[in-house]
Simulated assay, not measured.
Amino acid sequence: MNLTPQQRKVRNELRQQEASEAIKEHRASEKAFYDNFQRLKAERQAREAAQSKTKTQSASK
């Protein structure tokens, strides 16, 4: 496949744009995963703290 210099330039620019878009999508996906992970972690910690508090109150009665 013989490309002219102009065709090569256009192809490279298109590849660069596609790569940039893929990186943006990947970062957005990673951020969504991290945010969800942090939310679930906070919920779990709150649940465990509530259970611990309940157990402590039951044991002191």
Rank of each mutant, 00 (worst) to 15 (best):
M1V: 09
M1Q: 03
N2K: 08
L3E: 03
L3I: 00
L3H: 01
T4S: 15
P5I: 10
P5A: 12
Q6N: 12
Q6S: 15
Q7P: 13
R8K: 10
R8F: 10
K9I: 09
K9D: 15
K9M: 11
V10F: 08
R11L: 13
N12Y: 01
N12F: 02
E13S: 03
E13M: 05
L14A: 04
L14R: 05
L14M: 04
R15I: 00
Q16K: 01
Q16F: 00
Q16S: 04
Q17S: 03
Q17W: 01
E18G: 00
A19E: 02
A19G: 01
A19C: 04
S20C: 05
S20F: 01
E21G: 03
E21A: 05
E21S: 03
A22Y: 00
A22I: 00
A22V: 03
I23Q: 13
I23W: 02
I23H: 03
I23D: 10
K24H: 08
E25A: 13
E25K: 09
E25L: 14
H26I: 04
H26S: 14
H26M: 12
H26Q: 13
R27Q: 04
R27W: 01
R27H: 00
A28Y: 02
A28F: 01
S29N: 09
S29P: 02
S29I: 02
E30F: 02
K31T: 01
K31W: 00
K31S: 03
A32H: 02
A32W: 00
A32R: 03
A32I: 01
F33Q: 12
Y34Q: 14
Y34L: 13
Y34G: 08
D35M: 07
D35K: 03
N36A: 11
Q38N: 14
R39M: 11
R39A: 14
L40S: 12
L40Q: 14
K41R: 09
K41W: 05
K41A: 13
A42R: 08
A42G: 11
A42E: 14
E43Q: 14
R44P: 07
R44C: 14
R44N: 13
R44L: 15
Q45C: 13
A46V: 02
R47N: 09
R47C: 13
R47P: 11
R47Q: 13
E48Q: 06
A49S: 08
A49I: 02
A50E: 15
A50K: 05
A50P: 06
A50I: 02
Q51D: 15
S52L: 09
K53Q: 08
T54N: 11
T54G: 13
T54P: 09
K55L: 11
K55Q: 11
K55N: 11
K55F: 03
T56H: 11
T56V: 04
T56M: 10
T56S: 11
T56Q: 10
T56Y: 13
T56I: 07
Q57Y: 06
Q57K: 04
Q57V: 08
Q57P: 07
S58I: 06
S58A: 11
A59T: 07
A59W: 02
A59M: 04
A59D: 04
A59N: 08
S60P: 05
S60M: 07
S60G: 01
K61M: 06
K61V: 08
K61L: 09
